[in-house]
Amino acid sequence: MNLSYLFDAAHWDFSTSGSIPQLLLSHIWYVFLALVIGTAIALPIGLYIGHTGRGSFIAINAGNAGRSLPTLGLLMLMVTLLGLGLLPVLIALTVLVIPPILTSAYAGLRSLDQRVVDAARGVGMRPWQVLTRVELPMALPVLMSGFRSAALQVVATATVAAAVGLGGLGRLLIDGLAVNDYSRVLAGAIVVAVLAVLLDLILALAQRWIISPGLRASR
């Protein structure tokens, strides 16, 4: 196993363009943007469907259709339509992020014990209060698992940005393959994998912190 590219100090110099820290930073930036945009779109829709029970077939079908779209194909299509740049990459990655968050928000609300929701209504909560004070906190464990799976998927898939001339850790994979430098490809694969593990750890900690202790004790 040739780790020379990964451990060469020159490749870790932040000031050189194309160095690992720079690529890492742009990679995280793409992941962050895709997660923020994807959540902003999927979460309200998922909560609405879960809360009202209306349009659940949309949630299920959109979720399944979105999952089956090949990201690379979608990306190439977007580049043909929109040209190069960050926008086509963000669209392709956001489409990847939406299904798990949408379905987990919907499933999280649907799986709640309806007696709890009835009780909330019974004590005089308004629909908005039922959603924000009862349904959402109790659905958080399911919701977070959807978010974490979206985050892991997008960390791995954001490497496609390099296929259309952008940065990110995919540069190491694609440039390494193009010039037959497997040490570089390996470095890219390792950094992506480590980033995925770290991100999942951080989200696991966040999950412990934001989920009500009452819910945790019950499991």
């Binding site: 464990p141 399911v142 977070m144 698992s145 974490r148 799976s149 892991l152 593990v197 999942d200 750890l201 696991a204 999950q207 499991r219």
Partner: peptide, 9 residues
């Protein structure tokens, strides 16, 4: 949901 966390790790 702990199980899922472990699974993804």
């Amino acid at each position: 949901m702990k199980r899922f966390g472990r699974f993804s790790l």
